[in-house]
């Protein structure tokens, strides 16, 4: 059924991605592809994997942006200019247009936890859901002819045969910088919700009216390099010296 759940879902499972922390290593891209190509459904195929024109299906990709404030021309010169690594996967929107446009009922949003999924046995591969997604979260698998998308690793998060620490999406488990967090954004007391509240987490393209579940945390304001160094040691000043050094200070003064 491709109508959206009529009531707000009791849980809103999703990701919080910290743009301040992501180092752009692409480890989450690889672990996502590895996990999701081996379990349920069609494999994430590659086209011409050893040719010049290689391409393939990915559910998570990292873009890198350059942000230049007014007046700043060169990265690193103007105060707030910076490079931001930007991981992007399905945002599991509350008003997901990819669900309502689906003609077959293959695309659906779960009423219990808000995860948006594709039933591959029903998918005809028309591609309309990918057209409707402003975020580019869906990619057609060209070998299987069905639409693939992030499942929030539904086969991990509810999988009791895994150790508890592993019951999070593969990208979250893998991230070496801890830039990706998983949790219930419908629960205001959850760790992810508190993080969003403290850091001013935001929606991508709110003007599209999709109400994404996933949130992004903005990069923290920059500080000058010198601010990270400790207070400079002043050789002429011995104020506050204690113990042995106070005695030495006194002795040397007397000589």
């Amino acid at each position: 059924m491709t109508s959206l759940p009529s009531l707000p879902t009791p849980k809103k499972l999703g990701l919080v991605i910290d743009l301040d922390v992501c180092v752009g290593c692409h480890a989450c891209v690889i672990s996502c592809k590895e996990w999701n190509t081996g379990g349920y459904g069609a494999a994430l195929s590659d086209q011409h994997p050893y040719g010049a024109d290689v391409s393939g299906t990915f559910l998570n990709r990292i873009h890198t942006f350059e942000v230049v404030p007014e007046g700043g021309q060169v990265i690193g010169e103007a105060g707030e200019a910076r490079i931001v690594h930007f991981p992007k996967s399905c945002l599991h929107c509350e008003d997901a247009p990819c669900v309502t446009v689906c003609p077959t009922g293959a695309s659906y949003k779960r009423a219990e936890d808000g995860i948006v999924l594709v039933d591959e046995d029903k998918c005809i591969g028309c591609g309309l859901c990918a057209w409707s997604c402003a975020y580019g979260a869906r990619e057609m698998d060209l070998a299987a002819g069905v639409m693939k998308k992030c499942t929030l690793c539904i086969d991990r998060i509810y999988n009791e045969t895994l150790r508890e620490i592993d019951r999070v999406p593969s990208c979250v488990r893998t991230c070496p910088a801890n830039a990706r967090h998983y949790g219930d954004l419908g629960d205001p007391t959850s760790e992810v919700s508190r993080m969003v509240a403290e850091r001013g987490g935001f929606d991508l393209m709110p003007e599209q009216g999709t109400r994404p579940t996933n949130k992004y945390l903005p990069p923290r304001p920059r500080k000058p390099l010198a601010a990270s160094a400790g207070p400079a040691v002043l050789a002429e000043n011995t104020d506050g010296a204690k113990g042995f050094f106070a005695w030495l200070d006194g002795m040397l003064d007397r000589i």
Partner: peptide, 13 residues
């Protein structure tokens, strides 16, 4: 708006 970084400055890929 796509990156939410507009408050810092102009965003370019």
């Amino acid at each position: 708006t796509a990156t939410g970084l507009g408050h810092i400055g102009r965003v370019r890929l």
